[in-house]
Amino acid sequence: MTRHALSMVLSNVPGALARVVVLFSTRGVDVESLSLDPTERGDVSRMDVVVGLPAGRSPDQLVKQLSRLVDVKSVVAVADPARDQIGA
């Protein structure tokens, strides 16, 4: 299992979080921590999540799968999850 931090911007609409979380579950991704906050814009939320991937699975694939979701406005894998902890 390898740890990766993802930083995402979601549409602030009902069901957006559910779709992201179900994708994690469908693709066998462990969620270690997750935080969701509305931004000042109001129509989008910022989501930070640290996930565990089975060995050999790259975060690139997950980023692409998340990018397919209509309510995901942007998603990037943050380089070093140890340094970039949630809430740090």
């Binding site: 069901g15 469908t26 397919r68 979701l69």
Partner: peptide, 14 residues
């Protein structure tokens, strides 16, 4: 149904 269909649709509107 919107939740039920989450992993099997491109998108779902209510």
């Amino acid at each position: 149904i919107r939740s039920i269909s989450l992993p099997i649709t491109k998108h779902a509107f209510q």
